[in-house]
Structures are given as structure tokens and as C-alpha cells.
Simulated assay, not measured.
Amino acid sequence: MPQVSISVNGRDYRITCGAGEEEHVLALAALLDGKARDLTKRLGHISEGMALVMVGLTLADDLAEARRQRDDLAAHHDTAATAAEAAESRERDQAAAEEQAAQAIVAMAQRIESLAERLERT
């Protein structure tokens, strides 16, 4: 299995990963390193364990926010889909009503022509 070298908050680590996952692991490590460095800048020197917990909480908070946004988008999508279905239903109803009206007009026109023909014969 491939291994990659990563650096998190100034410490180097060798990580084993699946074949083809090297770039992904490096990108994740860069994200983790950025969070750890930002935390160290804001809080000063803290123990490695505390840094791990704080970075984990920060990432968990980011994940929770992303999930909330995903759920909000899904709810918005569901609302939009329901509105689209209602609009399509109204359009179908309107088309059916227009078809009925057209048929009624044709029937009336035929009846008027029939009456006109009878009047002309008399």
C-alpha cells in the first residue's frame, strides 16, 4: 500500500493509504494542518492532545454546518419541486379546460350552421 508524508502543525507523519488516494490524503492533511496552525496562532502553545481535540471539534463544527446547509438546500429543493408539480398540474388543468372550451365552441358553431341552413330553407 502506498505511503505519503504529511506535516501537521510542524510535525511530520507517514500515512498509509489506498492506491490512488495519495492526493486526497495530502489535501486532507493540508486542511488539517491549516486548522491546527490557525488554532495555534489563536491560542498559543497547547498540548498536542488538546490541539487534536480542538481541531477535531473545529472540523466537526464545519461538518455540522455543511450538513445543515445540505438539509436546508434539500428542503428548498423539495419545496421548489412541489411548487413545480403544482404549476404543471395547473397547466394540465388549464389545457384540459381550453380543450373543453374549444370543443364547446365547435359544437356551438356546428349548431349555428345547422340553424342557419334550416332558416335558409324556409
Rank of each mutant, 00 (worst) to 15 (best):
H45A: 14
A75H: 06
H45L: 12
A81L: 09
A75L: 12
A51D: 04
V25H: 05
L43N: 03
R90N: 11
A102M: 11
Q103R: 15
A27G: 03
T40D: 06
R42P: 08
E23S: 14
D72N: 12
A80G: 00
R92N: 08
A101Y: 12
A97Q: 11
A101G: 10
L52T: 14
Q110V: 01
A29T: 01
R70V: 00
D33C: 04
S47I: 00
G49K: 08
L28S: 03
A97K: 02
Q94C: 10
G49Q: 09
A36K: 04
A60E: 07
V25N: 02
A96N: 12
E48L: 14
T82N: 06
D62S: 08
A109H: 13
Q69F: 01
Q69M: 06
L31Y: 03
I46R: 05
L59D: 02
R67A: 04
S89Y: 00
D33T: 04
H76S: 15
R111Q: 13
G56T: 01
E98R: 14
A86K: 11
H45W: 08
R67D: 09
A30R: 14
G44N: 03
L32P: 01
T58S: 15
H77L: 15
A102D: 11
A51P: 01
D78W: 05
A60T: 07
E99I: 07
H76R: 14
E99P: 10
Q69I: 07
R67P: 01
T58I: 03
S89H: 11
A101P: 03
A96G: 01
D38M: 10
D62P: 05
E91Y: 07
A64D: 02
A80W: 02
E99G: 15
E99R: 15
L115R: 05
D93F: 06
R68S: 04
L52Y: 01
A30I: 03
L32S: 05
G34E: 10
G44C: 06
A74D: 09
T58V: 10
R37A: 05
Q103L: 14
E91Q: 15
A86R: 13
A64Q: 00
A95D: 13
A84Q: 10
G56L: 04
V106Y: 09
S47D: 10
A96M: 11
I105E: 07
D62G: 10
A97H: 06
D61A: 02
D78R: 14
L43R: 15
R37P: 02
T79K: 14
